[in-house]
Design a protein around this nucleic acid. Structure first.
Lengths: 245, 245
DNA sequence: GCTATAAAAGTCGATTTGACACTATAAAGA
DNA sequence: TCTTTATAGTGTCAAATCGACTTTTATAGC
């Protein structure tokens, strides 16, 4: 498919176009960041230090930077999500996994003004997860066990957003390569199984999971890595994800 | 989960808040409307009669109506999609199926200004599909065979949007009840099979599809309806979708 | 009535899945 | 050093599912 061309007429029209004719919404991104800490699925919450919902817990996120001219239209929504993630977590590197979930656009979801939010979910490797908490003020950012979320009241409609992100996460762990972003660069079969178990909060048969794993291996999705993982009992074979870009 | 409450402080803050601090994007909805006409999957395209991309084909859609005050924040994005669908198709009733697909937010996707678009796909029953074309100016709205889309250049990034909507449609036909929105209120097994075939553009084994169908029936998703569908050969049993709201 | 056609029903082997038993290998402790 | 314990890794089996295929049945059209 090739995109339709802009005509001279278009160019003239655009030159004259005054974009202030209609009121516009503010657009934000909100990100459900997941990782696994101590064999439990956790998500990052930020304590707001501004009204509205000051001192309440919310998902990390912020406004999409929109440029000030026709030529400079600012950053993409995806880039805004990646940037906010970097800024709020303080992580130097790109997230292992970042995917858009949906736009949330009910009126009055923000009492200040009309705000439409695009939700993302991000996955962080377990080892990095602990860094975030250490780096920032502990009272400002907090990893919260997903199983404890029911007790929490979140700002805005972030409970709905988080719920949608969780559903999407579970779907991706089952049917795509998302789970590999929740283990280390190298991992054992039981480690990967633990991720699946913790995401679905249900135990999986070790033998059956291994069979499934071996099919991924045959399909070239994962490959054996050198070394063995020393555990309290029999050492486990170590693997790595093949599509490491 | 209960939402966090607004405090008095919030109320005072909101009262003083001036929402014009940062530039905002325009937000639109774009809708891929699908139906089946003459046993082929088609989507509705609209010929733009304004710049940019004047006289080019585009997906139906339009701007989300944002209110002018804190109290009146306008319509929800979902409502905007339903409204645009009504307006552009002229159909009096609600669409049988309308689902958000994703937000498209790259800068420069609209040459006039920064526009973020939320994409939806809608499904229309076959009988109603023909009405639309008849009702509007034929040169203005057109049902296009999905298999012929490669040849068409569409305005904006509507080719990407349409492609994402098609992918989602196929996923929903396979794994949810979307297909029932592409047959009549009552339908036969072969009619429903034709929908699956046309969406995936591949023939399905009649016997195996029937077996799958019968499992849906056992699960109470569909139920037998009175009467028989008269065909050129053996009459077919008629069914209906059970969850008719 | 005969024929063509498609709905409807049935068959069969291959594959997948879930539940479970069994074996192998290391650490830990007596 | 021998035994225990834990868990990685292997194997088995029946049930469910799936794809390809055959057979029966009911109707329209000739």
């Amino acid at each position: 498919m090739s995109r339709a061309r802009l005509t001279d007429e278009d160019a003239r029209f655009i030159e004259k176009y005054r974009p202030d004719a209609y009121p516009r919404p503010a657009v934000t991104v909100d990100i459900a960041v997941f990782t696994v800490i101590d064999a439990r699925l956790v998500t990052l919450l930020i304590k707001r230090n501004e009204a509205p919902f000051r001192n309440q817990w919310a998902l990390p996120g912020g406004f999409v930077r929109v440029g000030t001219s026709r030529k400079d239209q600012g950053e993409s929504v995806d880039d805004a999500a990646a940037r906010e993630l970097r800024e709020e977590t303080g992580l130097p590197l790109d997230p292992t996994y970042l995917e858009q979930v949906a736009a949330f656009g009910k009126p009055m979801r923000d009492p200040r003004m009309r705000v439409i939010s695009v939700a993302y979910f991000a996955l962080i490797r377990p080892a990095l997860g602990s860094l975030i908490h250490a780096g920032t003020d502990a009272s400002h950012a907090q990893w919260v066990h997903v199983s404890d979320l029911k007790k929490r009241a979140l700002a805005f409609d972030h409970e709905s957003i988080l719920s949608a992100c969780l559903t999407r996460l579970r779907e991706r762990v089952d049917n795509s390569n998302a789970a590999f972003a929740l283990v280390g660069e190298t991992f054992t079969i039981p480690e990967l199984r633990a991720v699946h178990e913790v995401v679905h909060s249900q135990a999986l048969d070790a033998g059956n999971f291994r069979r499934r794993f071996m099919r991924w291996r045959e399909d070239g999705i994962i490959e054996e890595a050198p070394g063995k993982r020393i555990t309290a009992s029999k050492p486990a074979t170590v693997y790595r994800f093949s599509q490491s870009r």
